[in-house]
Design a protein around this nucleic acid. Sequence first.
DNA 1: CTTGAAGCTACACCCGCTGTAGGTCCCATA
DNA 2: TATGGGACCTACAGCGGGTGTAGCTTCAAG
Lengths: 142, 142
Amino acid sequence: MLSIGVLAKRTGTKVQTVRYYEQIGLMPEAERSAGGQRRYATAQLDRLAFIRHARQLGFSLEAIRELLDLSDSPERSCAEVDAVARRQLSEVEARLARLEALRGELQRMIGECHADRVADCRILEVLRDHEECLSDHGAPQP
Amino acid sequence: MLSIGVLAKRTGTKVQTVRYYEQIGLMPEAERSAGGQRRYATAQLDRLAFIRHARQLGFSLEAIRELLDLSDSPERSCAEVDAVARRQLSEVEARLARLEALRGELQRMIGECHADRVADCRILEVLRDHEECLSDHGAPQP
DNA sequence: CTTGAAGCTACACCCGCTGTAGGTCCCATA
DNA sequence: TATGGGACCTACAGCGGGTGTAGCTTCAAG
């Protein structure tokens, strides 16, 4: 049985984060030692590793909850898992497109400014005057 | 003089957000009508438009605060403005690189799975077993 | 003068944690 | 076996960047 500290270290998680995952029901309620400290078996280590890895791939906690539920019912169709992963991929692709547009805009803005004084700065001018903006980017990225 | 609703609509902001910007000191305290409602002059409209545009380009509120301060002192060197913009550009580029790596990982994961049942799903397998991961991505993206 | 939209304040909530305060437990060493 | 100090506990506040709600008041058109 592992303490929360060892569990956290082995999965690259902070101790508070493990407790937070328990609190929101992503990790099951841990067994306790006689003195009330959390004790974990290997199954919990695997579960936490799964969660961290999925987080690193940008999955939301909600998506991870879904994936964990699916992985608990091995006879179900894999299509649902596929759908969650594809949804995640398309979110990543959307963010990429947006960031690429932003990069272009920033590069243009920076490239245009050859002034010395703030008064003549093209960067501030572009920011001040929305009309000079090539595109409307919608909401700021998440 | 404009009401907060008109100001918000003209800049594509929510009314609450305008009040929030005032609360955190990004917008100055507004003048008030006899009955206590906020009233805005054109200068405030410009300021809010500047803020919104910078937000669309992904600048943080802190960076925007800095840019607004700089633009208030037109005799200062433009280099500082340039630095803020370049910092923002490199942040965007870092996020792009990270998202491109994620996209690759997700594509690979999805591409590998040809199973029917969850029990044989490659996607879940990859998520379960960190060793199969091509790279360590560090923290989840912001 | 009425009425209903728009404004006001104050507060809670979203995500995904992170940090703190003030106390308790565990276990290696003396 | 006693002790010290790290690791653990709960409870709660805070981050960024807003958004939503409740329960009022004000404004302006008809």
